[in-house]
Amino acid sequence: MIFDTALILDSIPKMLFGIGLTFQLLFLSAALGLVLAIILLLMRISGRWYLSAPTMVYIYIFRGTPILVQIFIIYYGLPQLEFVRDSVFWPILREPFGCAILALTLNTGAYVSEILRGGVLGVDRGLKEAGAALGLSARHRFIYITTPIAIRLALPAYSNDVISLMKSTALASTITLLDMMGIARTIVAETYAPYEIFISLMIIYLALTWMIQRSFGWIEKRMSRYVRSEA
């Protein structure tokens, strides 16, 4: 079996053409998802049942169903509903890009809020008590003690989620978007050369993963400079 290197060299630039869309999907969903996650987190730990219960249900649904199904519901399913077609959001929801962003955001928001919650729960009780003993109000304790430490604790898991999010952007190709995956699939459909195309694409994704990991590793290192490193 020969590798058609000419094909590879020809296709890589074409696929990289889609990297812009991949990045848009990634950064936009990550940013919006993070905002959503923080809102969900605050609702979840608010102690008020009418805030935390719906949040728990939301997280449960979005973590318990495949993201592909979520994408299909939003892109193919919502147009079935009249009130969606009539709503002010219709221009966004009609487009595959808007639907993809919405699906990815809702999905990552659920996961990240749980990750943040894990960070918050991981803050040593003694530190919060020390804050209380000094007379710091609950709000002050949360902002100045819990939050900085929780962020550091949540960082590894969060970096994993960002990588997952990047991999999920490839699913946008199933609703006609021409990100890298979408372009790759069209090339393969024309050339019947899955190995060359898909393996090259795999390498591109691996490079992206590596870059994300390096970035987070750097951030983690900076944040952990005060933590016991040796001994």
Binding site: T169, P194, L206, W210
Partner: peptide, 21 residues
């Protein structure tokens, strides 16, 4: 590294179409 860093859909399509070819 490879299987955690590659989108699932890509692995799937590579497997299926690759082996088919």
């Amino acid at each position: 590294v490879v299987f955690r860093g590659t989108p699932e859909i890509l692995v799937l399509l590579l497997f299926y179409f690759g082996s088919a070819v």
